[in-house]
Simulated scan of single mutants.
Amino acid sequence: MTNNTIEVLLTSERKEKPEDSTLQFGKVFTDHMFVMEYTTEKGWHDAKIQPYQPISLDPSCMVFHYGQTVFEGLKAYRTKEDKIVLFRPEKNFERLNLSNERLCIPHFDVEQALEGLKKLVEIDKDWVPHSKGTSLYIRPFIIATEPFLGVHASESYKFIIIMSPVGAYYKGGINPVKIAVENEYVRAVKGGTGTAKTGGNYSASLKAQETANASGCSQVLWLDGVEKKYIEEVGAMNVFFKINGEVVTPMLNGSILHGVTRASVIELLKHWNIPVSERRVSIAEIFEAYDNGQLDEAWGTGTAAVISPIGSLVWEGRTININDNEIGELSQKIYDTITGIQTCELEDPFNWVQEVKINSSVEAK
């Protein structure tokens, strides 16, 4: 942004809001969205909040042809005191700028983007659901908009934030999932786009996910793209293992996403004085730990689920069941603590939560 002014254009027709019990992920969207433009002449400019609506783009826009796009995902929560809070939103915007760096998209000002986000949440505050486990999912994204067929960084972009009320991720309790270790396809390699949250990473994962689903598995455990020995991520989440009392997670090596929930889990474990290390972890080590009776728990971490416990792993024709296919004690504690902090039901010793200040009335500027 070039200045702090955010124009507000309120909709004249409010949508009907769904009941909390009917909410699905990413199906319904709020009344408004944040939009900001970039050109090489003006930089980031024309920040505004406007009614949620389709966007019109030239068919030759570079995003369609060369995939120059990045995105983020975070949530707003309603507390028992009817306050609305965000969980570490600055980290998501900082990571969005890291993705921008890799995709040759101009950086934006994090503080000013946070101002726009909070204003958007304030305006659509009634869309933050009330029921336990529900939240307002927030999707910031940037797309290249220059109408040109040629491979170079675009000279114009749109930064958009849309929001969607979502139901409880675990409606019937947290059930560990079955994971297939992927030996053929790879997610990313060092020097590629694995550290960026960009659309191409996710479309490239669909084939392996489809194969895993066909074999009765819920997700894919990705191995490194060079030796196909070392664990990187599980599905679209970071992954942790508790081995003989110590928690280990793959180190950030240039092909693994810098997860906000991942960082939060590591800080929490250190706060509890639980040994945790970031290092290379081979799939063979995990199976060996299981054979030795030392593999206590395994779980994925991400914004949508917070914690997704791994009940079983399938690799080279062999299946192992972790912790009797039940959620582990530590996994449950991490989940309860982070979700408790997110909704202000538990103390926040890390200052992770930011309250969205709500005015009694919001008027268009």
Rank of each mutant, 00 (worst) to 15 (best):
S131G: 10
A113R: 05
S60F: 15
R88K: 15
E81W: 08
V121C: 02
L136Q: 09
H32C: 07
C104F: 15
P54A: 13
P106E: 00
Y66A: 06
K48H: 14
K80T: 12
N100I: 10
Y77A: 07
P140A: 12
G73W: 12
V151Q: 07
H107N: 15
I162W: 09
Y77S: 08
R95N: 06
L103M: 13
L57N: 09
G150R: 05
T69N: 14
V63T: 11
K83C: 05
Y157W: 02
L98I: 13
V85H: 04
K80V: 11
P147V: 09
A47D: 09
F141W: 03
P147E: 02
I142R: 02
V151T: 07
N97L: 01
N92D: 11
K118P: 09
G43I: 01
L74P: 08
G43A: 03
C104E: 02
F87Y: 11
I84Y: 03
I143G: 01
I161W: 09
R88F: 09
Q53M: 12
G150K: 08
A113C: 14
M163N: 04
W127E: 01
E90I: 11
C61N: 12
S164P: 06
K75R: 13
L120A: 05
D82T: 12
W127T: 08
K91A: 14
I84A: 08
D109R: 03
K80W: 07
I143D: 03
Q53K: 14
D46I: 08
I138R: 12
K27I: 13
S156H: 01
D109L: 07
T69W: 00
E41G: 00
E146I: 00
C104G: 04
T69Y: 00
M33Y: 06
I123F: 10
R95K: 00
P147S: 12
I161E: 00
Y157T: 01
D31C: 02
L120T: 04
I49D: 05
E37L: 04
K42L: 12
F71R: 08
V35G: 02
H152E: 07
K48P: 03
L117S: 11
K125R: 15
F87M: 05
G150V: 07
L57E: 03
P51E: 10
I49G: 03
T69A: 14
R95S: 11
D124E: 10
L86S: 07
V110A: 05
Q68F: 06
G43Q: 01
F29W: 02
I160P: 01
I160W: 02
H45T: 05
I49C: 05
Y38D: 08
G43N: 03
K75N: 12
V110T: 14
I105Q: 03
N100H: 05
E37R: 13
